[in-house]
Write a protein that binds this DNA or RNA. Structure first.
Length: 991
RNA sequence: GCCGAAGUGGUGAAAUUGGCAUACACGCAGCGUUCAGGUCGCUGUGGGGGCAACCCCGUGGAGGUUCAAGUCCUCUCUUCGGCACCA
C-alpha cells in the first residue's frame, strides 16, 4: 500500500487548484456571494510569519466550508507593498525597494500557494501599482474636497531613525516607533492630516452593533477616549479686587472638566505651558519667572515630562474668578496640564483630584472639600460641632473648665467631663462645678433625657437638643478618654476646642469638619493624612451653596444648566482621538496629490479657501504654504506617479521628503491656472493604502472607478475578516474611517467594512513569545515541508480557540500529522458494498451536525476534535462503505484539503472535491433512540440508567428505583422529599 | 488608576449555557505487530483511600444562591492585553 506522502500530494493539488481555477469565482454571476478576507499581506523579506499564516488559515477554512455549503466564495489576495517597513529593509540591504519587492512578493506568493489556500490568484492587487495608488490619491482629493484632509502646523511625532513624522497610532505605549522601535521626538511641523476626529462619535457608537471581537472594540473605545463634561469660563480677576477686567470673551480662561460638581472645591486654575494666556496674564513681577518656566517646559520631551514624577509649576501672579461662588483663585502654569487635551487649562480641585492635591500640597495651596460620601453624617457632624462650639464658648465665659469628647461607638454623642487628671473623688464632691454645667446646658437648649447611675456618688446625665445631638455630662473619664488610644493625638489636632475625641463611626465626617476649621487658620491641611486618600469618587455636595446635598450626578446637570444660562460655560464632550497625520517624509509611498500655486493665490484668493465651499463639516480650511494656493490634482491627472529614482531616495532627516530634491517632479504646472507651480513632496502613510484595498478587490482592473458599484453592491461588505489585534487602533480604525468617508460620498450604503471581524490570538512557541533573538521562531514553510501543510494548518486550528493565545509545540503537531495519517490509511477499510452498522451511520450524521454548529461559531478546535472522534470510530469498524467514506471525506476536506482531494481522486472522481456539496445530516438519524439518564441522590451521581427516548418521567422513576444501587441508598421510597426531573438528562431524588 | 479578556490534569484544552467535570490531542505507562525502528495498532492515565465492589476530595481563593455551580451573585488573588498627568 502507498504511504502517506503529504509533500507530493500537496504539491500536486495546489497546482491543480490554481490551474483549474477551482477557487476563482465568477464575481458578476455569483448567486450566493461570500467574501472571506484575511489581513492584507505585507511581503516582508523574512517571508511568511506563522501569525499571519494562522489568520489566513482561519479565513481559508471558513471559505472552503462556505464553498461546500453552496456559496460563491471569494478569497482575494494582494500585496501591501508600499511603506516604511519595506523601504527600511531596502535601505538596509542597499537595494531599490521596487526591485527588492519583486523578489519578496514572488517568495510570498510561492509560500502562500504552497500552503494550499483557496485564494483567487487571478485578481491580485499591489498598492505600489500606479493603477492602484491612483485611487489612493483619489481618496485623498475627495477627502480634501470635503474638508477632511487639511494641513496644519502642529506638534507631531518624529522618528529620528525613520526620519519622518508618524501618526499617533503608530507610536507604541513607551513612546517608541511602531516600525523601528526608536524613541520618537516631538517636533512642531506643518503636516497633512485627515480629520478622523470628525467621525469620533460615529466610530464610537458604531462599535455597539458591530460583530467584532470584544477585545478590538474595547481597544478602539479606549483609543477614542470619550469623556463627557463641561467647559467652564473663569474670568480673569484684576489686581484691584473691586473691579473685573473687561476682557473680551476670548480672554476668559476656559477649562474642560468632567467634574463640574466639584466646582465649589476649585481653589486654583492651571494652564499648560503652551496655553496662549500663560504669559499674557502674568503680572509684571512674575513675568520673568513664568517665561523661564515655559521655556524650560518646552525643551522637555513628552517622555521627560511624564517621567518627572513630581508636579511642578509656577504662579502667574494673576487670579481668576470661580464663576459659581465668585471666589478669587490663583492662576498657575504647570506642565502636568496637557496642551493637546480639552482646552489646555484645568480647574484644580485638590480635595477631589489626586494630581491637584499633590500640586496643592507642594505649593501650599488651599484645599477645599466639596463632596462627601455620607451626607447625613456630614450634616449631623456639622451640627454636632456647632453645638460643641456653643458649649465651649459659653463654658469659657462662665470660667467653667470642661472637656468635650465624642462618644465611642454611639451616634452623635459628645460628652462633657472634667479634666482628665482631676481626681475622681474630687469631681464627685464638687457639686458646684457640676451644677453649673447642668445649668449651662439647659440654657443652651439641652434637656435632660435620662440619667445613668454609675456608682453611689457618680451619675451620668444625658442631655439632648432639638437636633438630636446627645451629650453626656458626667465624670466618666475612665470609660472614655483613657480607653481611646488616639486620645492624646486627637487632642493635639483639636486644639481649637478644649478637647474632642471623635467617634470612630464619624471619623470621616468630623475630620472633614476639622479640615474646614483648619482652613480658617489658612493652614493647608494634609487631607490625605486625615482621610487616608483623596476622595475622587462621586458623592454628595457640601459647602456648595444651593447645590449642597445633591448627588454628584444631579449636581453636574444642575450646575451645567446654570452655567449655560449665565453663558459661563456649556456642556462639552471631549475625545482623546486626534487627527491622523498622513504626511511621510519618505520616498516609498504614493505622493500626496497636491500642487501649490503662487499665481492662484494672487489671482484667485478664494482658491486658498478651497475646500471651505463644499465643506459641510465646518473644518478649518487648509492654509498650505504661505502665499501659495493649495490645488488638489484633478482626477484626470491622477495618478501623480512616484518618480523612479536610482539615487537620492534615502530620507534626509531635514523634515522634507526625498522628492523635494527631485526638481523635475516638484516643478509642475498648476492644474487650475496652468502657470508654474510646485508639487507637495511628501508621500502618504501606507496605512492609507491598506485602508481601502478590499474595495479594490471587487474589481481590481477597473480603470474608470475606484471599484465597480454594481459588484460592490453584491460583494461588500466583507463577510469574514480575521487578523491580529495589533491593528485594533491602526488599520482597523483607519479602515472604518475611510469606509465612513466613502459612504458619505455616496459610494455605498454601509459604513462598517467588515460584517464579522475576529482578532486571532498570538501563537507562542512552548509558552514563550517568538523572537528572532530567542531563536524560537516557527517558520511555517519549514513545518509545512516536513510534516505537510494539511497537518500544520489543522494543528494551528486545533491548538485552541481562535481568539486565545496558543502555544505551538513540536510534540503537539505530531498528533495532527498522526490524524492525517490515520485518515489516509482508512482507505484500506473501504468496502464498496459493505453495509454500515447503525451506530456508525448515526455517528457520521451526528458529526456532520456538530461540525456545522462549531463552524458557525468559528470553533475550529472542537470541530477537528469531533472529526477525530469519527475517525477513531471508523477504526473500531472492520469495514466501512465507500458511500460513507465519501461523505466523511467532504467534511474532512475543509481541514485536510490536499489529502481529501487525493483520496477523492483515488475513489475515481475526476473533479475536485470542492465542487461537491456538503452532506446533509438526517435529523432522524442524529436523534438517539435510547438515552442515558443520570440518577442523582441529593445532587450526587449514584447511577445511570438507559431508557428509550420516549420514556416518560414515571417510566424513568420506575427504572431508577429498580436499580440495585439506588435501592441501597433509598430503601424506603417514602423518604423521598422531592424529585427533580430534567427530560433527557437526569433525575434527582432529594431525601 | 481606568477599561477589556482569562485562570480547569504533567501539557494544549473540552463541557448542548445551571444538569455525569476533564471530550479531543500531546506526554507518560503497559501490551501487541515488527529483524529493528515508529510517521503502526490496542489498553490505561485528576488526586487520595481500599484486595475489591466502592468511598472521599477536586475547575485560583473565601463566602452565597440552588435539589444541582467550572458555569449565577458578593468579595478577593493572579496573569495577559488596551489606555493612562486625558482633568
Amino acid at each position: 500500500m502507498k504511504k502517506y506522502n503529504p509533500k507530493k500530494i500537496e504539491k500536486k493539488w495546489t497546482k491543480y487548484w490554481i490551474d483549474k481555477k477551482t477557487f476563482v469565482p465568477d464575481l458578476a454571476k455569483a448567486k450566493n456571494p461570500y467574501y472571506a478576507l484575511f489581513m492584507f499581506p505585507y511581503p516582508s523579506a523574512e517571508g511568511l510569519h506563522i501569525g499571519n499564516f494562522y489568520a489566513f488559515t482561519c479565513v481559508d477554512v471558513m471559505a472552503k466550508y462556505m464553498k461546500l455549503k453552496g456559496c460563491d466564495v471569494y478569497e482575494p489576495v494582494g500585496w501591501d507593498a508600499f511603506g516604511i517597513h519595506s523601504e527600511n529593509y531596502a535601505l538596509k540591504i542597499g537595494e531599490m525597494p521596487e526591485k527588492m519587492l519583486k523578489r519578496t512578493i514572488k517568495n510570498f506568493r510561492h509560500q502562500m500557494q504552497a500552503a494550499g489556500l483557496s485564494c483567487d490568484w487571478t485578481r491580485e492587487v499591489n498598492t505600489t501599482d500606479p493603477e492602484y495608488y491612483k485611487w489612493t490619491q483619489w481618496i485623498f482629493t475627495k477627502l480634501f474636497e470635503r474638508g477632511l484632509a487639511y494641513q496644519k502646523e502642529a506638534q507631531v511625532s518624529w522618528c529620528p531613525d525613520c526620519k519622518t513624522v508618524l501618526a499617533d497610532e503608530q507610536i507604541e505605549a513607551e513612546g517608541l516607533c511602531e516600525r523601528c522601535k526608536a524613541t520618537v521626538e516631538k517636533r512642531k511641523m506643518k503636516q497633512w492630516f485627515f480629520k478622523i476626529t470628525a467621525y469620533a462619535e460615529r466610530l464610537l457608537s458604531g462599535l455597539e452593533t458591530m460583530d467584532w471581537s470584544e477585545i478590538t472594540k474595547s481597544a478602539q473605545r479606549n483609543w477614542i477616549g470619550k469623556s463627557e463634561g463641561a467647559i467652564v469660563k473663569f474670568k480673569i480677576f484684576k489686581t484691584k479686587p473691586s473691579k473685573f477686567l473687561r476682557f473680551s470673551l476670548k480672554n476668559d480662561i476656559e477649562v474642560f472638566t468632567t467634574r463640574v460638581d466639584t466646582l465649589f472645591g476649585c481653589t486654583y486654575v492651571v494652564l499648560s505651558p503652551e496655553h496662549e494666556l500663560a504669559l499674557k496674564i502674568a503680572t509684571p513681577e512674575r513675568k520673568k519667572e513664568v517665561e523661564k518656566y515655559i521655556k524650560k517646559a518646552g525643551q522637555k520631551s513628552e517622555m521627560e515630562r511624564k517621567e518627572s514624577k513630581e508636579k511642578a509649576g509656577v504662579f502667574t501672579g494673576a487670579y481668576a474668578v470661580n464663576p459659581v461662588n465668585g471666589e478669587k483663585v490663583p492662576i498657575w502654569v504647570a506642565d502636568y496640564v496637557l496642551a493637546g487635551y480639552g482646552t489646555g487649562a484645568v480647574m484644580a480641585v485638590p480635595a477631589h483630584d489626586e494630581r491637584d492635591f499633590e500640586f496643592a500640597k507642594k505649593y501650599k495651596l488651599p484645599i477645599k472639600q466639596s463632596i462627601t460620601p455620607d451626607y447625613e453624617g456630614y450634616k449631623q457632624t456639622e451640627k454636632t460641632v456647632e453645638a460643641l462650639h456653643k458649649i465651649n464658648d459659653a463654658a469659657k465665659k462662665e470660667k467653667l473648665k470642661i472637656w468635650l469628647l465624642g462618644g465611642l461607638g454611639c451616634a452623635f454623642h459628645a460628652g462633657i467631663i472634667y479634666r482628665l487628671h482631676d481626681d475622681l473623688d474630687f469631681i464627685a464632691k464638687d457639686n458646684n462645678q457640676f451644677k453649673k454645667a447642668i445649668k449651662l446646658f439647659e440654657k443652651l437648649g439641652f434637656k435632660k433625657v435620662r440619667e445613668k447611675k454609675l456608682s453611689e456618688t457618680l451619675t451620668n446625665y444625658i442631655f439632648a437638643n432639638k437636633d438630636g445631638i446627645e451629650i453626656d455630662l458626667g465624670p466618666n473619664v475612665g470609660e472614655w478618654g483613657l480607653a481611646d488610644k488616639d486620645f492624646e493625638e486627637n487632642i493635639k489636632i483639636l486644639n481649637g476646642y478644649e478637647a474632642c475625641v471623635l467617634s470612630k463611626k464619624f471619623h470621616i465626617g468630623l475630620k472633614n469638619l476639622l479640615l474646614r476649621e483648619r482652613r480658617k487658620e489658612k493652614d493647608s491641611l494634609d487631607l490625605a493624612y486625615l482621610q487616608g486618600k483623596v476622595l475622587t469618587d462621586d458623592g454628595f455636595l457640601v459647602d456648595s451653596g444651593i447645590y449642597a446635598g445633591l448627588t454628584s450626578e444631579k449636581a453636574r446637570e444642575e450646575i451645567t444648566k446654570w452655567l449655560e444660562k449665565k453663558k459661563l460655560g456649556k456642556k462639552e464632550t471631549n475625545y482623546k482621538l486626534r487627527d491622523w497625520c498622513i504626511s511621510r517624509q519618505r520616498y516609498w509611498g504614493p505622493p500626496i496629490p497636491v500642487v501649490y500655486c503662487e499665481h492662484c493665490a494672487k489671482n484667485f484668493p478664494k482658491a486658498r479657501l478651497f475646500p471651505s465651499k463644499s465643506s459641510t463639516l465646518g473644518i478649518p480650511q487648509s492654509q498650505a504654504l504661505e502665499n501659495y494656493a493649495t490645488i488638489p490634482v484633478p482626477e484626470k491627472d491622477l495618478p501623480v506617479k512616484l518618480p523612479e529614482l536610482k539615487k537620492g531616495w534615502e530620507p534626509a532627516g531635514d523634515g522634507k521628503g526625498p522628492l523635494a530634491k527631485v526638481e523635475n517632479f516638484v516643478k509642475t504646472s498648476c492644474p487650475k491656472c496652468g502657470g508654474e507651480a510646485r508639487r507637495e513632496a511628501d508621500v502618504m502613510d501606507n496605512f492609507l493604502d491598506s485602508a481601502w484595498y478590499f474595495f479594490r478587490y471587487v474589481s481590481p482592473k477597473n480603470k474608470k472607478e475606484i471599484f465597480d458599484r454594481k459588484l460592490g453592491k453584491k460583494w461588500l461588505p466583507v463577510d469574514l475578516y480575521v487578523g491580529g489585534n495589533e491593528h485594533a487602533v491602526l488599520h482597523l480604525m483607519y479602515t472604518r474611517f475611510i469606509t465612513m468617508a466613502l459612504h458619505d460620498l455616496g459610494l455605498m450604503d454601509f459604513d462598517n467594512p467588515f460584517k464579522k471581524f475576529r482578532a486571532n490570538g498570538m501563537i507562542l512557541k512552548d509558552g514563550k513569545k517568538m523572537s528572532k533573538s530567542k531563536g524560537n521562531v516557527v517558520n511555517p514553510e519549514e513545518y509545512g515541508e516536513k510534516l505537510g501543510y494539511d497537518a500544520l494548518k489543522s494543528y494551528l486550528l486545533f491548538l485552541g480557540p481562535l481568539s486565545d493565545d496558543r502555544s505551538f509545540s513540536d510534540e503537539g503537531i505530531k498528533g495532527l500529522r498522526h490524524w492525517a495519517e490515520r485518515v489516509f490509511n482508512l482507505k484500506a477499510r473501504i468496502a464498496s458494498n459493505h453495509k454500515d452498522s447503525k451506530d456508525i451511520v448515526k455517528k457520521l450524521h451526528q458529526t456532520i451536525k456538530a461540525v456545522e454548529s462549531d463552524m458557525d461559531s468559528q470553533k475550529y478546535n472542537t470541530a477537528i476534535a469531533k472529526l477525530m472522534e469519527l475517525t477513531n470510530a471508523f477504526y473500531a469498524e472492520e469495514k466501512i462503505s465507500a458511500k460513507m467514506f465519501e461523505k466523511y471525506l467532504i467534511i474532512v476536506s475543509i481541514f485536510l484539503p490536499a489529502l481529501a482531494e487525493e483520496l477523492w481522486s483515488e475513489l475515481g472522481y475526476g473533479k475536485s472535491i470542492f465542487l461537491e456539496k456538503w452532506p446533509k445530516y438526517d435529523p432522524n438519524l442524529v436523534a438517539e433512540k435510547e438515552m442515558n439518564i443520570v440518577v442523582q441522590i441529593n445532587g450526587k451521581v449514584r447511577d445511570q440508567i438507559t431508557v428509550s427516548a420516549e420514556a416518560k418521567e414515571d417510566d424513568i422513576k420506575k427504572s431508577a428505583f429498580a436499580s440495585e444501587k439506588i435501592k441501597k441508598y433509598i430503601p424506603n421510597v417514602d423518604n423521598i422529599r422531592k424529585i427533580i426531573f430534567v427530560p433527557g438528562r437526569l433525575i434527582n431524588f432529594v431525601v
